Amino acid sequence: MSLQWKGVFPAITTKFTAEGELDLAGFSANVKEQLAAGVNGIVLGGSLGEASVLNTAEKELLVKTTLEITGDKVPVILNIAESVTTEAVRQAKLAKEWGARGLMLLPPMRYKADDRETVTYFKTVAAATDLPVMIYNNPVDYKIEVTLDMFAELAEVPTITAVKESSRDVTNVTRMINRFGDRFSILCGVDTIAMEELLLGANGWVAGLVCAFPRETVAIYRLTKAGRIEEATKIYRWFMPLLELDIHPKLVQYIKLAEKQAGIGTEYVRAPRLTLIGEERERILTVINTALANRPQLPEYLSIAVH
């Protein structure tokens, strides 16, 4: 199965018990919901997956558990978010041993590398594997922007084939296409501008609220790519108050609460994160429950051909 960076790739949340242990039953149930909804790949251990609190053994278990469910249906992608280049290289090699089909690669963590250091980091990790690599460009949260000139250098590495575009600047899609044509697949990484970027030529969507609302997410993608804009827009407008939960520092807690309310997850997180309480929890519940009460009727979107 070759990896095509195209379609909807859920940034899956990592399910925990109330005691903070991995909840593999809950995790597996959500992955099955994603597959039934028609997603095109699974991204493990991302920011939404609470990468910073997972150890290597847990990452291996998550990859292998996911592969037991997905088989050859969709590719499984492992995120790499490390502070040390040698550890990132080790994780890349382990990912292939475990059966992952691709990597999502963040810039160096904790240290704000300059352009040369960042490019060297990306090149070193990507050169250590034959798995396809998606660069995660998120200067808002990680304070490092991967510029067009940096991508020109990264284009020299054949395994670097995609970008998760999370700069929150929709014009970056056009700039990337103007500069590089189809050299890099572009996947939107910000829920609130996903339809806009798909219309501008993005190939896919690494989504967050898909964890709680997989069918609506895939429907928007397929309808948009099929040119059925009016239908997609109606769903997207309903979705927007929920999608805004993706751009908050507590996106993990917010989206997990949405999973709970939608019946396909729990709100448990691993410390130092804490579950929501008080007015904040009630406010987010209002957003979620209002959306659930007005959930739109979806067309038969899985039969829509997407090229």
Rank of each mutant, 00 (worst) to 15 (best):
E231H: 08
G181K: 10
L276P: 06
S167W: 10
E60T: 12
A128I: 02
T233V: 12
P249M: 02
Q253I: 04
R215G: 01
F239V: 11
L3S: 03
R283Y: 10
P249K: 02
V53C: 03
L35W: 02
A88Q: 04
R179S: 15
V170W: 10
H248G: 05
M195P: 07
E197W: 10
C211K: 05
L274E: 12
R90P: 07
G99E: 07
G49M: 03
E267N: 08
P296G: 02
L78E: 00
T217F: 00
K59C: 12
N30Y: 02
V163F: 08
A262S: 11
P158K: 09
T70S: 09
E60Y: 08
M150A: 01
P299W: 08
N30R: 04
A232T: 08
R101P: 12
P108W: 01
F9P: 08
A258H: 03
E145T: 14
K250H: 11
G49W: 03
N137M: 11
Y221M: 02
P75H: 03
E197Y: 12
F180A: 05
N294A: 14
A305C: 08
T66V: 09
A36W: 07
K59V: 11
E165K: 06
V163P: 04
L148S: 11
A57N: 13
L200E: 13
K112L: 13
Y121L: 00
A232G: 09
E282V: 05
I247K: 08
L148Y: 09
P75K: 00
A57D: 12
N30D: 00
P296V: 07
P296C: 06
Y254R: 03
A262F: 11
